[in-house]
Amino acid sequence: MSTRITYREAVREALREALAADPRVFLMGEDVGRYGGCFAVSKGLLEEFGEERIRDTPLAESGFVGAGIGAALGGMRPIVEIMTGNFSLLALDQIINTAATLCHMSGGQFHVPLVIRMGTGAGRQLAAQHSHSFEGWYAHVPGIRIAVPATIDDARGMLRAALASPDPVLIFEPISLYNMEGEVTEAASAVRLEGAAIRRPGRDLSVITSGASLWKCLEAADALASEGVEAEVIDLRMLRPLDDAMLLESLARTHRALVVDEGWRSVGLAAEVGMRLVEQGFYELDAPVARVCTAEVPIPYPRHLEEAALPSAPVIAEAARRLVGHAK
């Protein structure tokens, strides 16, 4: 049985299910209660679960993330919403110096079962201070797991898996996908917090991506297919840990890899993925690993400039053509 809903509704359903299933779970963040969430994800939850469990916070990311860590240490299962990835930088100290380290520093005595959800990425004309993609930065840090749900099923299922983790999990929800419609399938109830997924099989090259870029890659793959180039599109899903085994298994079949990332190219996620392919799959490579990333500028506000800065299906397709020697 399947239902057609938006990505936003899938996340809301996941929150509702978690709140209903476990009294230790509560949601905390800016405007999550009376306003219903900046992106309307938590709309209606205040009325349904009350002020104790749907808590509006001051505009103080470091403070409320710290409160979440304390609650997790105290036995609760907090879900902290940070409006955008840009704002999460105000809570970096709490996330990296505290949440990510306590298990290690306590010799395994203290776990921090905290889930932080945040909006990420561009595409909604929210300009440079609300549109950046920092999931690759967080994936640098040991002690936390980084999840990027790109599909309706993952939006619906990843929260449950994250709440089951004894350690901090950051879920990056691409804000450009909130209005995307799709079906929730039975697979949503079996979502795991590990592993990449092949979203489209192909034999000619592996296109490795995550988040909102997945859909651009699939669009590019359609265009390529009409030219006889079969691209395999892989959704990383988890940026930490990365599913090296699947990437290498795909590379062993296609021998060519294109990494597409909405983050910037320099010192970024795409560099990490590409380097792992080279380190572990060097003898499978039939062409240099290629990257399509966001232009190295703060994300512009005007729509045409924002679109020009981001990876797009035509640019991805052209990079793929070059990689397989079919450049136009």
């Binding site: 021998h255 060097f282 003898y283 499978e284 490579l285 039939d286 062409a287 070059r322 020697g325």
Partner: peptide, 24 residues
Amino acid sequence: VSPAARARAHDLGIALEGIAGTGA
């Protein structure tokens, strides 16, 4: 020579010298 081509040539026992490359 691409790494994959080098490995394959080694497996097949073919000398790379003299193979005409069609890649970039």
